[in-house]
Nucleic acid binder design. Structure first.
Lengths: 337, 337
DNA sequence: CTGAAAGCGCTTACAG
DNA sequence: CTGAAAGCGCTTACAG
């Protein structure tokens, strides 16, 4: 099958190619009746503008890029990314933008991908995940002047637009809830050190523990995988003064922790309370159902995409605060006995 | 920053733009010394060919498309897709191909996406998931002559290339294992009816049950979500002659089923044996760990991508059989008591 | 309001 | 082995 072009439409409508372009793009320069006629013909023959020709003429490529820098092992397990992507897609589809996805092995590769995308003019902008403290990607994107929205922050985002959620506040709410239940020995299994949100949470955890007078509150760093959740939980529950409550930085590690407690013959929530960050459907699948900190991740993705599309359309970079995660108590939290 | 073009390289090297193109693409037409000089300059100034210009000149767009037609709710939960995507990416990255992802709401939208991608010349080929019986996508892709690899089959793939795994054989192995343990009342919670692999598995299930003389073997259709897994399991376990073993078509539903059994005070595997299809890390997170049918999903994705790249390069469409899923017995299967 | 033309940055026959 | 030129399908000033 031959793809129809604007030349075909122009011939059928008896006008120039320029007129077709103006009509299809809603530009002034054609009469309303001509525009309608041209649009009717385009629809009828199933015309879609060649994206390469369009991009080559200086128009946007109508694609945005998302590079994911996580080992395949943890990527598959994290409902977070797929939920984020569905939200991003919902927004992009509405605007007929495509999503170009790339899984990378490390930060250097990720930066190389941005440089390549920029050079190839393949995407009009990018979404940045897993912001790090002093993230090397930020100055590169500033230099390239490639429109970018950081999903994370605040802070360490340079002059880039960002969409963030107040993790510190969510953690404070959780700690106060556990303290109100009577817990005095609370531990945390955190995410990867160096990630900004890990550091933010750790700082908030330490501060609130001090304020509440919890002496032995400490964080163990982990990599979000079930294996690491298992390992960290075993270590915590084997210590002489084991915690009566553990807060996990994602739900996968929390589920792993729950299984470890059951294996060791501890009752949950009787002997151990568990709180998970990220309230994916997984949390309601296990028994007992997990108490979790959740928020609308697809909406977070949609907001990020919308911010990026605005940026591409010429808006100035800004910060947007999304909702704060809310605690949903379920079956894994109770007063210590 | 201005993007460097072949004109910049040509000027610096003192040759024509054509010569630069030949040199960079490994075509004959330039001497080896000129080629080396040109490549050195290109590397030094960080040249990347403008993908739009390239595509407009008839070269491949160097991108493939993947449209996912699942509700956001089940998408986020299914480790399968992210694992498949990491495998696809591994192959594409090596060949500097991009992956264009689109989440669609239904089959009609998905077909519209393929027509648009074809018209826009946005992708060089597509990967098709969730093959249905008499799938309407197949004739459309044949008509468009858009290179396509169906992840699924065999059968119902028309003249399209496909990569498949023998689900019937895997199910037979599972049933024989359960029968050997002494189970006589085996039920199955299946995937969406109409999906080819659901139908294949159902047919195999019925056939092997008949052969083994299991009278009450029946399948309940579900949608892969935890909620449906919960609902189906409750129904099965509330029946007067409840099954002593249940086979689930994915791991998410199996985990939901495990929680239902625990809630109802049944011991697993004492009162109920459970087998999950898809052996993601989730299966080892719960307690007891799930007996599961697993195979290397990233490798399946890589093979599919490789088949598609071959097709784009001009190979004839063919069928490729990937490994059959293997049963890994863990803590949820035992003789009925 | 409309048409003819240049140009985006490549690739690829076609001459020398 | 190399250069000059056409062409891919659009967009967008520039004339009429």
């Amino acid at each position: 099958m031959k793809r129809p072009t604007i030349a075909d439409i122009a011939r059928q409508a008896g006008v120039s190619k320029g007129a077709v372009s103006y009509a299809l793009n809603g530009q002034p320069g054609v009469s309303e009746s001509t525009r309608q006629r041209i649009i009717a013909i385009a629809t009828e023959i199933g015309f879609n503008p060649n994206s390469a020709a369009r991009a080559l003429s200086g128009a946007p490529a109508r694609a945005i890029g998302l590079a994911l820098c996580r080992p395949a092992r943890t990527l598959g397990m994290e409902p977070f990314f797929m939920e984020l992507i569905s939200g991003v897609e919902a927004e992009l589809s509405a605007m007929s933008f495509a999503l170009t996805l790339q899984v990378v092995a490390n930060a250097d590769d990720e930066i190389a991908v941005y440089r390549r995308w920029w050079g190839e003019r393949r995407v009009d902008g990018v979404l940045i995940c897993d912001l790090r403290v002093d993230d090397p990607r930020v100055p590169v994107l500033e230099e390239l002047q490639l429109p970018a929205v950081v999903i994370g922050g605040p802070g360490h985002t340079g002059a880039l637009a960002h969409v963030w959620s107040d993790d510190a506040a969510a953690l404070v709410e959780t700690m106060e809830y556990l303290a109100a239940l009577g817990h005095r020995r609370i531990a945390r299994v955190g995410g990867m050190p160096g990630l900004l949100h890990t550091e933010t949470r750790t700082a908030a955890f330490d501060a609130v523990a001090r304020r509440l007078g919890l002496a032995e509150a400490s964080t163990i760093g982990a990599d979000y995988s079930g294996e690491d959740g298992t390992r960290a939980t075993r270590r915590l529950l084997s210590s002489p003064q084991r915690p009566t409550a553990i807060v996990y930085d994602n739900d996968v590690m929390a589920i792993a922790g729950l299984a470890v407690a059951q294996e060791m013959g501890l009752s949950v929530p009787g002997d151990l309370s568990i709180v998970a960050w990220d309230d994916s459907p997984l949390c309601r699948l296990v028994h007992p159902a997990l108490t979790a900190l959740g928020r609308d991740i697809p909406a977070y993705g949609s907001q990020s995409a919308r911010t990026l599309l605005d940026l591409i359309a010429g808006a100035a970079p800004a910060g947007y605060q999304a909702e704060t995660a809310r605690l949903t108590p379920r079956g894994t939290t109770a007063p210590p006995r």
